[in-house]
């Protein structure tokens, strides 16, 4: 697909830089039945971001945004660890599954809350999800009682740090979720309905789409993705930190979506693009480490990337900078019409 060409190009360029600066970058080896290598690590450490970004993609496709995913990451990790820490045996698989269930149910409930505020109450998405972004951190600390809950559970450790069939388990989870989303949106019809609501909400309503329910489902799903990411992150370090888990992941996720070619104005979305976008961000971090640039400058690179991507996406920028001598087309929106939107 043409739309994926240039994020793929950026990723390739980043990998190329690594090839030059790092020995054995593309080397993948099997040790003790597990796959190892820099490329595997990019996937492994990038897995939570990919998940959150996938959920965010659907939200953004509906013309929305979800700022609360970082908080949901922290809450779900905290809830799972709290449940496990109270188990008589932390290695009990049933107990761990129960804990995961409780954590994910909580995440979904929070997502439904976001969806309710956006769809039913009619609050702008950025504001509606800001509430949970602020309160959620407190909620996560409330769950952990302000401590960092440390657990020692082998089954739980599997989610973020374990291997299965030689592959890191996190990659398997991402693959399963990606396959699921791709199935539901592209094989089933959810994707079309989402793109339609994001592209023209009124036309969608008049075509009989139940946009309220759809929005709630999308926000709930986004929170579910964040919840799973939260499990991965806490499992990887075998502890839950209400304060720092998933800090700023919402911004990285939005960035990944935008880099992947899904417009913040809603409508068409690209799951593949989002995965590429998340991988670019993760590779950028890895690259900066590996070529010896101080890791602190990652943020500078990100600032640069956001600016360039957004400028390129802005029609006003393209019109002003790549101005051609064509006769300007008549405005399709009559001057008076824009005004009615806001009262």
């Amino acid at each position: 697909m043409k739309r994926l060409a240039w994020p793929a190009g950026i990723l390739a360029a980043l990998l190329l830089v690594n090839l030059i600066f790092t020995d054995h970058f593309f080397q993948i080896e099997i040790k003790e039945g597990h796959l190892y290598g820099s490329l595997i690590d990019i996937f492994r450490f990038g897995a939570p971001l990919i998940l959150v970004a996938l959920g965010m993609t659907l939200v953004i496709a509906t013309k929305g945004i979800d700022l609360s995913v970082g908080s949901v990451v922290a809450i779900s990790g905290a809830m799972a660890c709290l449940q496990i820490s109270t188990l008589p045996s932390q290695d009990s698989i049933g107990g761990v599954l129960g804990a995961i269930g409780v954590a994910l149910a909580l995440a979904v409930a929070l997502g439904v809350g976001n969806g309710f505020l956006v769809a039913i109450v009619g609050i702008q998405p950025i504001i509606a999800t800001l509430i949970l972004m602020v309160a959620g951190r407190g909620l996560a600390q409330l769950i952990t009682d302000g401590q960092i809950i440390t657990i020692n559970s082998d089954p739980y450790k599997l989610i973020g740090g374990g291997y299965w069939l030689t592959l890191p388990f996190g990659i398997i989870i991402v693959a399963v979720v990606l396959a699921l989303i791709a199935f539901v949106t592209r094989r089933l019809a959810l994707g079309l309905l989402i793109e339609s609501v994001g592209g023209n909400a009124e036309a969608s309503r008049l075509s009989g789409i139940r946009s309220h329910g759809l929005l709630i489902v999308v926000y709930a799903f986004c929170a579910l993705c964040a919840g799973i990411a939260g499990l991965m992150i806490s499992s990887n370090v075998s502890s839950a930190d209400g304060n720092n888990a998933g800090l700023w992941i919402e911004l990285d996720a939005i960035l990944a979506v935008v880099i992947g070619g899904t417009s913040l104005a809603g409508g068409r979305f690209s799951l593949g693009g989002t995965v590429l976008g998340a991988l670019i961000i993760q590779t950028l971090t890895t690259t900066i480490y590996s070529i010896g640039v101080p890791p602190e400058t990652t943020l500078l690179f990100k600032a640069l990337v956001v600016t360039i991507v957004c400028l390129l996406q802005s029609p006003a920028f393209r019109a002003k900078v790549f101005r051609s001598r064509r006769k300007p087309a008549p405005p399709t929106v009559p001057a008076g019409e824009k005004v009615t939107v806001r009262t």
Partner: peptide, 20 residues
């Protein structure tokens, strides 16, 4: 404003109500 979903294809616009 009330009919087209401009970014979708002819096919997708055509089956939208049926799919809904």
């Amino acid at each position: 404003e009330e009919g087209l979903v401009p970014e979708l294809t002819v096919r997708e616009n055509l089956i939208l109500a049926l799919q809904a």
